[in-house]
Design a protein around this nucleic acid. Sequence first.
DNA 1: GGCATGTGTATTTTT
DNA 2: TACACATGCC
Length: 718
Amino acid sequence: MSEPWLEGLNEQQREAVKHGDGPLLIIAGAGTGKTRTLASRVAELLHRGVPPERILLLTFTRRAAAEMISRADHQTGLKVSTRVWGGTFHAVSNRLLRIYGRALGLPDGFTVMDQSDSADMMSLIRNELGVAKDTKRFPNKNTLVAIYSRTVNSQDKLADVLERHFPWCADWEEELVPIFDRYVDRKRASNVMDYDDLLLHWKLLCERPGVGDNVAGRFDHILVDEYQDTNIVQADILAGMRRRNKNICVVGDDAQSIYSFRAATIRNILDFPQRFPGTRVITLEQNYRSIQPILDLSNAVMERAKERYTKNLWSTRAAERRPALYYCMDESEQCGLVCERVLEHLEQGIPLRQQAVLFRAGHHSDALEVELMQRRIPFRKFGGLKFIESAHIKDMLAFLRVLENPHDEISWFRILCMMKGMGPQWARRVMGQLGVRRHLAAEGDELDAAPDRPAGVGQGQAGEMVSPLSRFFAGKLRVPPDSEETITELRKAMKDCYGVEELDEESDEAESVVAAGSSPTLAVQIQRLRHYYEPVFKTIYDNWQVRIRDIEQLEQIAGRFRSRRRFVADLTLDPPNSTSDLAGPPYLDDDYLILSTMHSAKGCEWTSVYVIHAADGMIPSDMATKDEVQIDEERRLFYVALTRAKDWLYVYFPLRYYHVKHRTGDAHNIAQLTRFLPKKALALLDQRSSESLPSLGAELRARSRSEIDAQFKQRWRS
DNA sequence: GGCATGTGTATTTTT
DNA sequence: TACACATGCC
């Protein structure tokens, strides 16, 4: 009664919550009340008198942290949630580096690049170095980032990374080295950090004598969720943070490790007891989420995985109803069946929000989305393309980022290139005149800092007087004639935005420090920038009517922030999922069906779950079937998808796939059921098919014969 | 140099 | 569908 956070916990959960000091490893199978346990432990710590600001809760998303902390808040009745440190490794690192970054020689006011910014930078460098113009295809910008990031995060040798994960790029190792070198220099000179830098610098911070102890000493307790999806750097960070104080509690499930493409390694969780001697291990196996038949199926799927910590899950929720496997003619039938089921359940009283369609890759839901729109079923998609990745939003953010960090090359480049008459070459020249990224430029990185106008570059100082912005404000730039007018407009807009008192991010009470004087608020700045941007924007995009909604939305989000720095950082570290992709008219109760990639479904649960495209090549993705290790991860992914379901689970298997890509009429492949449903698992499913299916085998054979003929005939047509 | 246009080619998951 | 690259015209 007096300790409500302990109520209703089972013995193991309670033990985990009550655990005193020292390392604790909680192996928590799917649906075993892991979130609840973690939240209760936070409550327990608070109750014990641990000051909230001395608790650090690391989670996979910001939202997960916020939910747990507010739950703890609620249970203890202490209103301290804002003071607990919670968030992703990246977000927490960002915050710490603003405070302690100087110890690493990091200048104040760095900005954070997201992945596409990194890609843009790679692209710039790629063009500068003019790699492999005549020869065969050189890895594109996204691949470059992927290779770089993986190398950095796994701390493996480039050659090994190439061989194991990017075999088709293995020939380019020599060319990659200078690109990556330059990429590192370039970030430094632009005063930006990419996602990986945040982790690496936090790790460095821990290792730095003196400061390292300060940083670690801030926290009495560290709790980590989803530990199976952390990488080596993250494990090193934790080790660094717990050199003296050993209060660390990690929670995870090796059976749900699905982020190895981000260099996450299952070894972290398996080796945790060795790394922290004296670790207490508690296993949670009682599942509260799913009915037993769903667990039976999930267990059967996982049976073939090799190295495992967890045992089989068991539930107290017995039920007759078994999960179902639907054979469909093709994708379009799959869409129809899903929609019908969803609506049936809705009528039974299961709201759309309690129903989710899960798939391997973002585009796997394309056809379904169309169908949903036609049927006016509102939905919301998680994973896949995000709001923040759309070009017009990135444009808007580029303005803000330049104001925040005048050396941000990528943002300048973006801003300049969108002007008429200004292409990459001119943009480079203009940036040279402005002295962008000169301020920390490593020697030897002068290649295109064109000496058009030296303009008294004060090197090495972040001084305001010589900042690219003040040079920009001063005018006197040599620019292409066609962009003369636009650039004047931009100058006015930026001037109007400038002069905001920066909030003091170094204090925990940053929010309470109010911007002084008459400097425009963030909202006003955005309005002003939009005023400049709109005419430009309309000339760049033909479908600007649609895009303008997003900009309005950006303004709305900005309304919740007072500090521009905070806004810009938060948006890249914790990007909102697209909210504008609601289909149909907004329903009164704002109910919508969930569409999600399997990855983004992690940690979630729904009353009914529809797993679509259960065909080999989709899951496992045929890009991840090189070796056993990859296949095992795909299996875990499938397992994650299945275990999201509480009461109803449907798996859909389209028998054929048309390949539109090779424009050969309606040729198709006959699909194979996913290999993750072997006989044993099939026996646990109700297998169903539509009326059209019984004759399908013969029909398919006939169809494919006639299609072969048609293909032959194509040869003498056109 | 910029810009419009055409061609060939791809590898999925996310902080 | 987007991106990288080539070509031709201003």
